[in-house]
Amino acid sequence: MSTKSSRRISLSAIGLTLVGIGLCATGFAGNYGLRPADDEATWWGIVAGIGFATTFIGVMKIWLDLSIAAMANDPGGANKRERLQAQRAWQLWTFPLIAVVLLAIAVDPLLAFLSTGTNGLKLSDVSRIAMPVLYAWIVPMIVMGWDAYSKQNRRFLDDELSQSLRARAVTTGFVVLMIGVTAAFGLGLLKPELGVAAMLFALTLGGVTTGIRFAWLYREAGRDA
């Protein structure tokens, strides 16, 4: 791993954390002195909630950057292979859980969008709706080995066991995605806005299933060994 690449990744994680802290501070400051029932108080509470989620994601990414970079700089061998693969499995437990949390956060702005359209839709609302979809892509990318760390450590993470687990995990995720998209299509025929809402759930659950399935299979393979 080059110093330049590692530094760029760490700076992006730090930037995400700082943005999250800023949103938290803004939300709490804006909410100060308002009654909980006020619409404005609800809005500032949402800002604080987004900030908390963003901060959590940023901190997790900093930790992952540092731990994986330390592994990458350690001399090679079977021990390094096991640690990198265990780290990947840990990511594939954690990132799907974050995706589910972000999906829950996205429900309110999604329902507001479906009922009122783009009128009054704010950039923060768009971000909340888009975040689960982003993680729906990130998790399968880790499984497939398309992320930066997997490419840099391909000889440790692309062994025969990983290829077998990857095929099984992607197959399971594809089945879940097809079922979800089919259900979204059926709902869309009845009521288009329901189809759009269901599509968000289908995309997120397809990605989440792929990651969790891979992590579970890795855990079972470790038990068998």
Rank of each mutant, 00 (worst) to 15 (best):
L66M: 03
K61V: 14
A25F: 07
A99T: 11
C24R: 05
D158M: 08
S150W: 06
Y218F: 08
V170Q: 00
P140W: 07
S115G: 14
R166T: 13
G27E: 01
W63I: 13
L165W: 05
T3H: 13
M144A: 15
G117H: 13
I105P: 04
A167P: 00
G30F: 03
D147P: 00
P140C: 02
R213T: 01
L203T: 04
P132I: 03
D74S: 12
F174M: 10
G186W: 05
C24L: 14
D108F: 07
I129C: 02
G76P: 00
E220H: 12
M60Q: 03
A41Q: 07
S5H: 05
A70S: 06
N153P: 00
A167K: 10
L123M: 09
S5N: 11
W137V: 11
T54Y: 08
L111F: 06
L66S: 02
A167L: 06
L189G: 03
T3L: 04
G45K: 14
E220I: 15
T210P: 00
S164K: 09
K4C: 12
P75T: 14
V208T: 07
T94R: 06
P96A: 03
S12M: 15
G173L: 03
Y218I: 09
G76Q: 03
E40N: 08
I105G: 04
D125C: 07
F56L: 15
R8Q: 15
V107A: 05
D147E: 10
G207N: 12
L23G: 00
E160R: 06
G33K: 01
G222L: 08
G76K: 02
Q85T: 09
A99S: 12
A184H: 03
K122H: 13
L114K: 09
P192K: 05
G20S: 04
A13E: 02
I212F: 11
G30L: 00
F185G: 13
P132C: 02
P75E: 06
L200A: 14
